[in-house]
């Protein structure tokens, strides 16, 4: 029998397209495409990118929570046994200044820290940060100890408190493991260049982008207007930044 089996041909078909794309990238070192969608499926993520969000609280409309419902829909989060145990990857926090009475609201989710406390404390390494700055839970090795939930300054994490069925194929989730905002990693990897919350916001208050790319809109807006981090005192260098207060 010929060593070139149909399977080998099949495998080549699967890989073929992406090899060409990889070659295209390496031909121009230092010059990276603005459209980062070009990362081929077989190329590992790298620290060339650092994905983040910029949230403009001036635009965040009072009483709106479209980003929350969009996140729940995208990731298959459903109400189960009540608000204390239901997972929330993103929530609207209403803020009021005690001294001036100034009020605003803002979405809060995993802040995708450069130095994430959840990653530091995780005993098995299930909580980890991808090279491109996205903080994730590897549920395959999460033992459900919840130490990361103790450590997170943003209360960004939830434990799945019950048996789940009918998860989204691209977003596996299950009982007894901890989860949080993935920055819509499946969309990022697909090259959508946005997240479900950012897409859903009617006021464009949420902007997704590459903090490492000085030409990206997120970087330009941060350069122009500045941005602040929640709990900046902790020095975690979050990937989610806020403007407007």
């Amino acid at each position: 029998m010929n060593s070139e089996t149909p399977i080998d041909q099949y495998r080549r078909r699967l890989l073929g397209g992406s090899v060409a794309a990889l070659a295209g990238l390496t031909l121009a070192p230092g010059v990276f495409l603005q459209t980062v969608q070009a990362r081929p499926a077989d190329e590992p993520v790298s620290d060339r990118n650092r994905w983040g969000l910029l949230i403009d609280t001036n635009k965040c409309a009072d009483g709106c929570n479209r980003c929350v419902t969009a996140c729940n829909e995208e990731n298959g989060l459903k109400p189960m046994h009540g608000p204390t145990t239901d997972p929330q990857w993103i929530r609207i926090v209403k803020v009021k200044s005690k001294s001036t009475g100034y009020q605003f609201q803002m979405p809060v989710m995993c802040q995708h820290c450069e130095h994430p406390p959840c990653v530091d404390v995780c005993p098995t390494g299930a909580s980890f940060k991808r090279a491109d700055g996205i903080v994730l839970v590897d549920r395959h090795i999460c033992i459900g100890c919840r130490y990361c939930m103790m450590a997170c300054p943003y209360k960004a994490r939830s434990l799945v408190h019950e048996t789940l069925t009918d998860q989204k194929p691209y977003m596996p989730r299950g009982k007894g493991t901890v989860e949080s905002c993935t920055l819509c990693v499946h969309k990022v990897d697909r090259g959508d260049g946005t997240t479900a919350c950012a897409e859903a916001c009617p006021e464009q208050a949420i902007l997704f982008g590459d903090l490492n790319d000085s030409g990206s809109e997120i970087s330009r807006r941060l350069e122009q207007y500045g941005g602040r981090q929640l709990r900046a005192d902790l020095g975690l260098n979050t990937g989610v930044r806020y403007q407007g207060f």
Partner: peptide, 15 residues
Amino acid sequence: PLLPAEFEYSSTFFD
């Protein structure tokens, strides 16, 4: 606290 001590919070997630 999410922000410096001057602020107070409320949310659906018990902030």
